[in-house]
Design a protein around this nucleic acid. Structure first.
Lengths: 229, 229
DNA sequence: GTGTAAAGTCTACACCGTAGAAGTCAAGGG
DNA sequence: CCCTTGACTTCTACGGTGTAGACTTTACAC
């Protein structure tokens, strides 16, 4: 009761608008998204929406941030492999939950708290794996590229088991040139993206372990290990 | 002189329009791209553009295909690792050359000839590495997700060495919670995306070799090996 | 010629983001 | 109390967009 509607329900409207905008975007996608529709849903003038967010671009950025804020990062565990897998899974689940919003995270490199938290987990895991700082920084980026790329491809509907039409298309190719592709048609038809993702994460982790063995860091990361272990 | 302008310069206009559309998109990006601007550049009515491509969406798809068609895939070599690296490099170069067009390849999963050719190279390489067909199919997707994800992130300007403002932001974080991140600031400042990409490819390839050792395919891929080697 | 079919154009419409002016209304000082 | 203030909301209007539908032009087949 302290400030029920002080200064014309300040702040309340803004989050309400953002929620409506997010829901609309998540449902219809970017092509059918417009400020005017958001305004109609909230029951407000289009210019009110613009007044709170400045521009459509800013609104989209806010939507991206809102989506990223909803993902909760797992706590660090003693096992750096599990930590990497957990972060990867969290982002993939985010993409599955709001596939139409997910591309926005790429466009506006959303740097919310979740971003920093996950970065910390990833960097910490890579150092505990035994990587040098330089390698950890580079592989950290690669990790994100892989996870976000995979999740984005899934969200865009690119990574699915192939259907009859794609099978026909591949079968029609010149067998002398596309032998391997055509040999894989049976497994491509029953491919499970989730399984492929987990297998690929294992491959990535395995490669990281190899790198750490061949080029280990000079001294263990005491503070990091102490904190995370 | 056989058909200088037979049937009202059929075909000539269309490719001319596509080229202009591609150039415009590559220069100004999606936000400032419009059918009417393309028409103005070619010196033609906006409806002419639409008449040839059906809709803006189809035009964008054509732009994506046009970009993909420009990348020339390397020939297969005896070394499957080199083949994977070469395909990865080709896509990354594509993203570097036309960063604004690149996101379109994700939105419309462009399936041009280059797509099939590169798939064949990748699948063939993965089988020669010793992977089972199931693993080859899954890891093939992972390979594309990683390469395209990395290239996309670079094209969107996400993967750069951090600047003073980002450094300040990271430094301002709670040191007890973001120790690893802050330790890596020095290397993040001088990070080279190209080097990180190559290192990451090596990690990925190393992981694939591990997987092939632990779960090898039953019999060698005679036809594929014979063709590619 | 006439027919035909594709290529190109014109007009018009609904929708979009948003600049700028105007209106509304709670809070605070006199 | 009135009056100013300033955030919030709304109204109006403008230039730009994609594109449907009708029209005109063009170039070949007959």
């Amino acid at each position: 009761m302290t400030e029920p509607k002080s200064r014309a329900r300040r702040g309340v409207e803004k989050s309400e608008i953002l929620q409506a905008a997010f829901d609309l975007f998540a449902e219809v996608g970017e092509a059918s998204f417009s400020i005017r529709k958001v305004a109609a849903i909230v029951g407000v003038d289009p210019m009110t929406v613009l007044h709170h967010f400045g521009s459509k671009d800013e609104l989209l950025r806010a939507i991206a941030d809102h989506g990223l804020r909803s993902v909760e990062m797992p706590a660090a565990t003693p096992n750096w492999r599990d930590d990497l897998r957990a972060v990867a899974k969290a982002y993939r689940m985010l993409a599955h939950h709001h596939p139409r919003v997910f591309p926005l995270h790429f466009r506006y490199n959303a740097t919310g708290p979740a971003d920093h938290i996950s970065s910390e987990i990833v960097y910490c895991a890579l150092r505990r794996a035994g990587l040098t700082d330089t390698a950890a920084a580079g592989l950290g980026l690669a990790f994100y590229a892989f996870v976000l790329g995979f999740a984005l491809a899934e969200a865009e509907g690119l990574l699915r088991a192939i259907g009859p039409s794609e099978e026909a298309e591949l079968s029609a190719l010149d067998p002398t040139k596309y032998h391997a592709t055509q040999d894989l048609i049976p497994v491509l038809k029953t491919l499970d993206p989730g399984l492929a993702f987990e297998d690929s994460m294992d491959v990535f982790i395995s490669g990281i372990a190899d790198l750490a063995r061949s080029r280990p860091r000079q001294k263990p990361v005491v503070t990091c290990e102490a904190k995370c272990a």
